[in-house]
């Protein structure tokens, strides 16, 4: 049985997928995951999920957002004057970054 492994580096961070392990049950999966994925890199917590329980939908089946040009949805599309609040600037930077990665995809 295959278990997908999600590792969280620090308290409060996101659990991100980092690989999978073979194991007969959940307890063994936790043990294997701890050794394979928590031994070398800083780890705060690990989730193991049976692969069969994961539903997947990919871009052959559905048109995901973020690939067509909908510039009206981006903070970067609006030119305003004066200094923006720091959190607005941060949001705009994150959006500019996402927009750039869309161009690369």
């Amino acid at each position: 049985m295959i278990w997908e492994v999600f590792r969280q580096e620090k308290t409060g961070g996101y659990h991100t997928h980092c690989g999978n392990v073979h194991a007969p049950d959940r307890e063994m999966a936790q043990q294997y995951a701890a050794i394979q994925h928590g031994r070398r890199k800083p780890t705060n917590s690990i989730w193991v999920v049976p692969r069969d329980e994961i539903g997947e939908i990919n871009d052959d089946e559905v048109a995901f957002g973020g690939t067509t040009d909908r510039s009206y949805r981006w903070a970067t599309a609006y030119n305003t004057t004066g200094e923006d609040a720091s959190e607005v600037v941060e949001s705009e930077d994150e959006q500019a970054d996402a927009e750039k990665r869309r161009g690369e995809a």
């Binding site: 409060g12 949805r73 903070a75 607005v88 949001s91 705009e92 994150e94 959006q95």
Partner: peptide, 21 residues
């Protein structure tokens, strides 16, 4: 709650800038 705020703040910059526009 903090994770929800990450996504909310990502999107909210557009709302504020559009409102300002």
């Amino acid at each position: 709650y903090a994770h929800a705020m990450d996504k909310v703040c990502f999107e909210e910059g557009f709302h504020v800038k559009h409102g300002e526009d």
